[in-house]
């Protein structure tokens, strides 16, 4: 038969097409699929290793850029990357890494995580992301776990400790503000000079578990931690507990604004930068 002549090449072409579709992200099985490439996995750990490789010494000035709530703000996130990449090139103004306060996605979809990473990987410095409430929606928490790692994480760069905590109490049925984890990583005060706690929902937010508010604030106060939060989109600094501890709401990237932390010894200062 005449048509048999075409059958084999057609099959080969089809198989080839399938391979091509698969490799260039043209194939979507479900918006909720959790199928990552090796290069998209475990990014916080990989990026923390890059920061560690900088070999920061306790006497070095450490600069960290803070952003948050970039969900569905691709244009602004793109502009942020450009702004920060220019800023870090200025003489004596090296920014060592970027901290993201959560809500990297709006609908908790792998695609959204991926689109954000495709922008943020253009940063000239590593970045770390904490889990936000939107990031948990549908299979989002599973995407985060695969892409950025556990919901609670701890890192140390020179004498600066960094604790990432899950405070999205609306999204979990289990008891999630892991105050035990927080305290265990705060207790050894002799090993650090500064400790930053990065958590998406602030303890004084209406979306935070009231039962966990006072004990959280107590730990922050006791160990003189530096709390950073996202969730609310307007940048703010306040002392809700009148205990000398400033709580910072980083603010959404949609306001075209980021915060730059400068750490010299035991002193942390911040500057709000518009772009």
């Amino acid at each position: 038969m005449k048509n048999d002549y075409y059958r084999k090449p057609l099959l080969v072409v089809l198989m080839g097409l399938l391979l091509v579709f698969n490799s260039c992200e043209l194939v979507e099985y479900s918006p909720y699929q959790v199928k990552l490439k090796e290069s998209e996995k475990d990014l916080n750990r990989k990026n923390a290793e890059k920061i560690a490789a900088l070999g920061l010494k306790p006497t070095d000035t450490l600069r960290i850029a803070l952003i948050s709530d970039t969900q569905r703000f691709y244009d602004e996130t793109e502009d942020f990357v450009q702004a920060i990449n220019q800023r870090t090139e200025q003489k004596g103004h090296k920014i060592h890494f970027v901290l993201h306060g959560g809500d990297i996605s709006d609908f908790g979809l792998l695609e959204e995580y991926r689109w954000q990473h495709q922008i943020l990987k253009k940063l000239k410095m590593p970045y770390l992301v904490v889990l936000g409430n939107h990031d948990c929606v549908a299979n989002g928490d599973k995407v985060y776990a695969n892409m950025y790692g556990p919901f609670e994480q701890v890192y140390q760069f020179a004498r600066n400790r960094l604790i990432l905590l899950n405070t999205n109490t609306m999204e979990f049925t289990e008891d999630i503000v892991r105050l035990d984890f927080l305290e265990n990583n705060l207790r050894d005060t002799e090993n650090y000079d500064n400790v930053i706690v990065l958590a998406h929902v602030s303890p004084f937010d209406e979306d935070y578990d009231r039962k966990k508010e006072a004990p959280y604030a107590q730990l922050i106060r006791q160990y003189r931690a530096y709390p950073l939060h996202g969730h609310k989109h307007t940048h703010r600094i306040m002392q809700p507990y009148n205990d000398g501890i400033n709580y910072m709401i980083i603010g959404s990237v949609s306001n075209r604004r980021y915060v730059e932390l400068t750490i010299v010894g035991k002193k942390i200062t911040h500057e709000v930068v518009d772009f």
């Binding site: 918006p31 691709y74 244009d75 959204e112």
Partner: peptide
């Protein structure tokens, strides 16, 4: 899908 379209419509650089 609808959510991807919404994301696209809100941005120029996507």
């Amino acid at each position: 899908h609808d959510l991807a379209v919404v994301s696209f419509l809100n941005n120029k650089k996507l």
